[in-house]
Computed example of a mutant assay.
Amino acid sequence: MTAAAPPMSTKALLTDVTTVRMRPRYEGSNICTWIGFKHVNYLVEEAVLVHFADSGAPARRLYEEHGLGLDVVTLETRILHAFHMDDVAEAEVVPDTAADDATLGFRVTLRVERGGSVLKAVTAKVRISLRADTYLAAPGEPPVEWAPFVVDRLGAKAHPEESAPARMPLTDGGERAVLASLTEGRNAYAWKWTIPYPYCHFTERLQMSGYLRLMEEAKDRFVLDRGISIKTLLDDRRWIPVVPRSSIRVVGEAVMEEDLYTVYTVEEIFKDLTYTARMDCYVIRDGALALTATGRIVHGYAEIENRRDWRLVPFDRRVLAALGGKPGGA
C-alpha cells in the first residue's frame, strides 16, 4: 500500500534554494544554433516549477488535491550571454517573498560554461499566484499556509502600482475601429486573435508561455508591416534580432476562444543600438476593453559572422526609419 504524501507546507518553498541542470528545448533554436528569448524564459519557468516540486508542492498536486492552479503572473528577465543548442544551464532558484506579499516571489539565475569559465547568463524575477479552480467544482478552503497567495481571478491581489488601468470604452464600428483606436497617435501595430487551447492551461486560461509566444509574434508582425521582416534582413544583411531584456505582467484573465487584441508599441530608440517596445493585451468584457497583460521587450540587431558567432550592429537609416515610422495597418 502506497503511503500518503505528507501535508504540503510553504516552509521549504519560501526558504530553500533549488539548483537544477537543464537544456534549452531544440524548438528554440531558430537561427543557426542560438536560443531565442522565449525559450530562455521557458528555462526560467521550468526552474521555478522544479523548485515547487522539490519543496513538496508540485503543480500537479496543488491542482489535483487543492484545486489551485499555479500561474506565473510576473516574469522579468535579463539575458547577459546567449544560449546555444545543447548548452547545459545550471539554474538557481532563490525564494524572494516578503511577509506581506500576496504573490510568491523568486529570483532565478541561469549559468552556463564558456571556455572553461562559468558565466552568469540570465537573471530573472518571477512571481506566482495560486488561482482557485472554479471550472470543475466550487473552490474549497485552501490550506492555511497557502491562503495568502490564493486568488479567485488573476490580478485580484495586485499591488496598486501593478493594477490594470481603467477599462477602455469600445469604439463603434467593429474590429477595424477597435484596432484603429488602439493604435491612434502611437507608433504601433495591433491585431485581433482568437485564443486557441494550446496557449492555455488549467482548462481555460491563457498562460504565461502563451503571452511569451504572443510577444515574439508581435515583433514578427510589426517588422513585417514596416518592410523589414525577419527574413528580409536575414537575406539582405544576415541581421537577426537579439533580446537583452523582457518582462510580462498578467493583470487579468483571458479565456480560451476569447478574442484577444494585442498592441505592440515602439516606445524608445536608444542610441541606434536598441529599441524598447511595449505589448498590451485586451479582451472585451461588458462592452469595454479590459487589459489582461502588459510587458516590454528590448531588441537590438546582430550580424551573423559564421555558424557560431555574431556581433551587435547599430541600426542603419532604413531600420531607423521603419522603427520610428507612422503606425502601420493591422
Rank of each mutant, 00 (worst) to 15 (best):
V94K: 13
P95R: 07
P95M: 11
A98P: 08
D101I: 04
A102N: 11
L104P: 04
L104T: 07
L104G: 02
L104R: 04
G105S: 06
F106Q: 00
R107N: 08
R107L: 11
T109Y: 04
V112G: 00
E113R: 09
E113Y: 01
R114V: 03
G115W: 03
G116H: 09
S117Q: 04
V118F: 04
K120L: 06
A121V: 03
V122C: 09
A124D: 01
A124P: 06
K125C: 00
K125Y: 04
K125T: 07
R127K: 05
I128K: 01
S129Q: 11
S129K: 02
S129A: 14
R131P: 02
A132P: 01
A132L: 03
Y135R: 08
A137R: 09
A137Y: 06
A137F: 11
A137T: 02
A138K: 09
P139V: 04
P139L: 10
G140M: 04
G140S: 05
G140D: 02
E141T: 06
P143A: 07
P143F: 05
V144T: 09
E145W: 07
A147G: 03
A147C: 01
P148C: 06
P148A: 08
F149S: 05
V150Y: 01
V150I: 11
V150Q: 01
V151A: 00
V151P: 00
D152W: 05
R153P: 04
R153M: 07
L154R: 00
G155P: 05
K157I: 01
P160Y: 08
E161A: 12
E161R: 11
E162F: 12
E162K: 07
S163G: 01
S163A: 13
S163D: 12
P165S: 15
R167A: 14
M168R: 15
M168A: 14
P169L: 06
P169N: 04
P169Q: 05
P169K: 05
L170K: 15
L170Q: 15
G173M: 03
G174W: 07
E175R: 14
R176N: 13
V178P: 06
V178H: 15
V178Q: 15
A180E: 13
S181C: 13
L182V: 09
T183L: 12
T183P: 11
E184G: 13
R186M: 06
N187M: 13
A188E: 14
Y189V: 14
W191P: 01
W191S: 07
T194S: 13
T194I: 14
P196V: 15
Y197A: 12
Y199G: 08
H201V: 00
E204T: 10
E204R: 10
L206S: 05
Q207N: 09
M208G: 03
